[in-house]
C-alpha cells in the first residue's frame, strides 16, 4: 500500500479584486503518493499556478483542506538564479534561508551539483551558463534541502525546443534517481506524457479534476517514451479531453 504524501480535499479558491471575485478552483480533490510523478494539465488560465501555491502552503484555500506530509521544493518557469551569486552560492540559498548552515548540508548540495555535471561551474556566475545548465542548477537548488515533494511550475517552458528536450531528460533522470515525489504543472501535453506516472486533466475555470490517467509506459525515460507506440494515442486522448 502506497503512502499518501499530499491530498487536496474539496478545495475551493477564490481570487478577490476590486472588480469582483473569480473562482479559480472549486471542489478540487486529488492526492499524490510517495515517490509518484504526477502531472497536471489544464486549459490556459485555469489557475494551475494557484494550485501549486496552495500545495506549498503559500496560499490558504477558501474552503476545503490541503494536507501534506513533508517539505516542499519549488521550481519555477525561469531558473531565477541570483546573478550576483556564484552557482554554488545559488544552490546553497535554500540552506541559508532554512538556516541549515552545517558543513554537511553544504557538502550534500555540492555533491549533488558534482553528481549532475555542475562541478566545473560551482564558482561561475549564472550569466556564464547556458539556459539548460542554468535550469539544471535551479533543480539542484530545489533539491539542496532534500525536500519530500517537488513542485514544478512549467519548469521547461522558457527554454527553446532542443534545450527543453535535453533538460526534460536531465530532470527526469535526476528526480527518478533521487526517488523524489513530483507534482508537475504544464500546458504541454507531450511533456506531461513523457514525464509522469499519472496525469490529471483539469477543467476550465473553476478548475476541477476532469480525468485521471495512469500512464502505461514500460520506460521512464522521456525521449524513449516519445518513441513508444502508445505515445500518440495518449496525446490525442489528452488533447481531446483538454478541449472538451
Amino acid at each position: 500500500m502506497k503512502k499518501e504524501i499530499l491530498r487536496f480535499s474539496d478545495v475551493t479558491y477564490i481570487y478577490h479584486t476590486v472588480r469582483g471575485e473569480t473562482i479559480a478552483a472549486q471542489d478540487l480533490s486529488f492526492s499524490v503518493d510517495e515517490g509518484e510523478f504526477v502531472a497536471i494539465i489544464g486549459p490556459s488560465g485555469c489557475g494551475k499556478t494557484t494550485l501549486l501555491s496552495l500545495a506549498a502552503g503559500l496560499m490558504k484555500p477558501s474552503a476545503g483542506t490541503v494536507e501534506s506530509r513533508g517539505s516542499f521544493g519549488y521550481m519555477l518557469q525561469r531558473d531565477e538564479l541570483f546573478p550576483w551569486r556564484t552557482i554554488e552560492k545559488n544552490i546553497c540559498l535554500p540552506l541559508e534561508i532554512k538556516r541549515q548552515t552545517a558543513p554537511e548540508h553544504r557538502a550534500r548540495a555540492r555533491e549533488l551539483a558534482v553528481k549532475y555535471g555542475l562541478g566545473d561551474f560551482l564558482d561561475s556566475y549564472p550569466g556564464q551558463l547556458s539556459g539548460g545548465m542554468r535550469q539544471r542548477a535551479a533543480l539542484i537548488r530545489t533539491l539542496a534541502t532534500d525536500p519530500d515533494i517537488l513542485l514544478l511550475d512549467e519548469p521547461f517552458s522558457a527554454l527553446d525546443y532542443q534545450t527543453r528536450l535535453n533538460v526534460t531528460e536531465d530532470v527526469s533522470e535526476i528526480i527518478r534517481s533521487e526517488q523524489k515525489t513530483a507534482l508537475l504543472i504544464t500546458h504541454d501535453i507531450s511533456e506531461a506524457i513523457s514525464l509522469a506516472d499519472r496525469v490529471l486533466v483539469l477543467t476550465r475555470r473553476p478548475a476541477r479534476v476532469a480525468h485521471t490517467h495512469t500512464l502505461d509506459f514500460e520506460v521512464g525515460n522521456p525521449l524513449k517514451r516519445r518513441e513508444q507506440a502508445n505515445f500518440s494515442g495518449w496525446f490525442e486522448r489528452l488533447w481531446r479531453e483538454l478541449n472538451e
Partner: peptide, 11 residues
Amino acid sequence: NKILLLRSMGA
C-alpha cells in the same frame, strides 16, 4: 518570481 521562490523556501 524571485520573491515567490524565496517564500517557497520559507524565507
